[in-house]
């Protein structure tokens, strides 16, 4: 008897809680999950990419132009990227970080564009179509991003952060990947990825979806 009463009470409380919390957090596309450690490391990796990749001279409007990192979608990095920009140059150029909520907001030129997984698949697809230009390194963090034409894509391998490189996409963009990067990267597998690797399968599916 007590439990029946209690059940109603708890259920009510839970539902109420859900309702209130839902009302507060539901609106807007949910920002990407922020695992601070993971994004700290990703920010460091963006810097590492900058240090280990050669951009064509044509990527910069003039010899003194800054190195511009664009973030497309909700910014998951907090202040880390700013800190890096303050501390370090890339290719002898000052780092400038620009944030673009959506593709419509994008203003080039950027040498590196980080495509947040807060963007929907359709948006990412549009980004890959529109921004695959000479001298722009597209970095993603969604399964299938590299296969669909991004140059670099982060993924989690157990408790480590790894990345894959689509060498032909990088080449098309006129970027020269450092040998150390290529060694570390998971090469992007051809479409007929082995059956047992379902994450590869997921990537294929997404890249098909993105197409």
């Amino acid at each position: 008897m007590k439990h029946v009463l209690f059940n109603t009470g708890v259920l009510g409380a839970v539902l109420l809680g859900v309702g209130i919390a839902g009302a507060q957090t539901a609106p807007a596309p949910s920002p990407p999950p922020v695992d601070q450690k993971e994004y700290l490391l990703k920010a460091v990796y963006l810097y590492a990419l900058g240090c280990n990749i050669q951009w064509p001279a044509s990527a910069f409007s003039n010899p003194n132009a800054p190195f511009v990192i664009g973030i497309l979608g909700p910014d998951p990095f907090g202040k880390t990227l700013q800190d890096i920009a303050r501390k370090k140059p890339i290719q002898g150029r000052k780092i400038v970080v620009k944030r673009f909520e959506t593709l419509q907001d994008y203003r080039g030129p950027c040498q590196m564009v980080f495509v947040s997984n807060g963007l929907s698949k359709e948006e990412q697809q549009a980004v890959l179509r529109k921004l695959s230009a000479k001298g722009v390194l597209l970095v993603g963090e969604s399964p299938g991003f590299a296969e669909a034409g991004g140059s670099v894509n982060f993924f989690r391998d157990q408790d480590r952060l790894r990345f894959e490189i689509n060498a032909s996409a990088a080449k098309r963009a006129g970027l020269e990947m450092g040998a150390q990067l290529l060694r570390l990267a998971e090469p992007v597998k051809p479409r007929h990825a082995s059956e047992k690797d379902s994450s590869a399968l997921d990537r294929v599916r997404l890249s098909q979806a993105l197409r």
Binding site: D35, V44, Y45, Y47, N52, K87, D159, L161, L184
Partner: peptide
């Protein structure tokens, strides 16, 4: 992986990306 170690991490990024790849992010 803490902000306090940022300098150290950046140094790895410049000189030894392979070691950077060994850093553990922790569970997902």
């Amino acid at each position: 992986l803490t902000e306090d170690n940022l300098d150290q991490l950046l140094e790895l990024a410049e000189k030894n990306v392979a070691q950077l790849a060994q850093v553990r992010v922790g569970p997902g």
